[in-house]
């Protein structure tokens, strides 16, 4: 069974069509890049998967179920913006995740935080934007979820830290799970992707195996993206 299925999804905001009759199917055990320019509909799609928006038309199914309480148990979501209370310490954030999610692996999270040299006693508000993003990523990746949905996980970190973040994602990835990563930093991310989805003005223009695309075109995903989206 597919882990995620979007069937004929349309979402409008007023007269603006954010997603236009899209179909997406994701199989378990893949790392998938959701690639598109700003305003292409990436975050809208992600919010539909996480039950933060409802579609005007079409259905979303996660592991065969509609988004809701049951699917939140198996979907680990990294939102575009931080939802952690800035007054909290990192340790308190760990406790929050332990309380909320039965599948949260606290030991793993502590190990990853140590790797990033982030102290458990620091308050979220005292951390730089990049470090805050790392804390959030560690929390999200330390769940034993079936589907990880990461909305721009590296937007706020410097290029040197991006590789480290990607390696964290890779090393905490279990091969049964699927990771959907939305990003516009394609050159940085493409080495880890099994599949790519191109989203352009609310329409899916490509969904295919990253390596087959490279073989067919002799180009990198980044180059193909730049050509497809050239204005």
């Amino acid at each position: 069974m597919s882990i995620l299925e979007l069937k004929n999804i349309t979402k409008k905001f007023g007269s603006k069509v954010a997603l236009d009759s899209i179909h997406v199917t994701l199989q378990p055990g893949k790392i998938v890049g959701l690639l598109g320019t700003n305003g292409s509909g990436k975050t809208t799609m992600i919010k539909l998967i996480n039950d933060l928006l409802t579609p005007d038309q079409g259905t979303v199914q996660i592991n065969g179920k509609k988004p809701g309480i049951d699917t939140k148990k198996i979907v680990s979501y990294l939102p575009e913006r931080s939802y952690l209370d800035p007054g909290m310490t990192v340790k308190e954030a760990l406790r929050l995740f332990s309380d909320f999610y039965a599948d949260f692996d606290r030991k793993k999270a502590e190990g990853l935080l140590q790797e990033f040299s982030i102290s458990l006693d620091s308050r979220i508000k005292t951390l730089s934007k990049g470090t805050r993003e790392k804390v959030q990523l560690v929390l999200v990746m330390s769940r034993k979820a079936k589907l990880f949905v990461l909305d721009e996980p590296m937007a706020g970190v410097d290029p040197a830290a991006r590789d480290h973040i990607l390696d964290t994602i890779l090393s905490s990835y279990d091969e049964e799970a699927t990771i959907l990563i939305s990003t516009h930093l394609i050159a940085d991310v493409e080495r880890v992707l099994d599949e790519v989805i191109f989203l352009d003005h609310g329409k899916i223009t490509r969904q295919e195996d990253a390596d087959e695309l490279r073989i067919r075109t002799g180009k990198s995903i980044d180059q193909i993206f730049r050509e497809d989206f050239r204005c």
Partner: peptide, 8 residues
């Protein structure tokens, strides 16, 4: 992990 690639 040695080669920093996806296990797949």
């Amino acid at each position: 992990s040695l080669m920093q690639v996806n296990p797949n």
